[in-house]
Design a binder for these strands. Structure first.
Length: 125
DNA sequence: GCCTTGACGGCAA
DNA sequence: GTTGCCGCCAAGG
């Protein structure tokens, strides 16, 4: 079992927590799972999520709200349509208005949320 | 084994 | 507000 699988599992756990009508960013997800510098890896993990895992991957955008992963849905319009379907506001054709719909995994608390996935190794390995 | 690419982010100019 | 550069780590050639 590659460590990357555990990483992606945590990413999926966070993505699954994204409420309908809200979006979050790669950086926030990375920070949530305890790897602030893993924003790029989050996107990498989500590659296999589209069409493979039943997750709202379309609710994940970059820090600027751009639908950078649109092509992984077949076409950016598909991702955009899914977001519009949930009433997510757009500031541009392929850019969501993060100011209105950004979501923090720990917005309701001062500490990171308890992930659904439990690592037997713990946070320190 | 080395180099390039990639759903990113932070910092400096 | 923009542009440019670096860091990060995994996958593919």
């Amino acid at each position: 079992m590659p460590a990357s699988a555990d990483f992606s599992a945590r990413v999926y756990a966070v993505v699954a927590r994204i409420p309908r009508g809200r979006v979050t960013t790669y950086g926030r997800i990375a920070r949530t799972i305890g790897d602030p510098r893993g924003a790029r890896m989050v996107g990498w993990a989500l590659m296999g999520a589209v069409g493979a895992v039943d997750l709202p991957a379309h609710r994940v955008v970059n820090r600027n709200g751009e639908l950078t992963g649109g092509w992984y849905f077949g076409h950016p319009d598909i991702m955009r349509a899914r977001l519009l379907e949930e009433g997510i506001p757009f500031s541009d054709d392929y850019t969501v208005d993060l100011r209105q719909c950004v979501w923090d995994p720990w917005e309701d608390g001062d500490e990171p949320p308890v992930l659904d996935v439990v690592s037997p190794l713990g946070p320190d390995g």
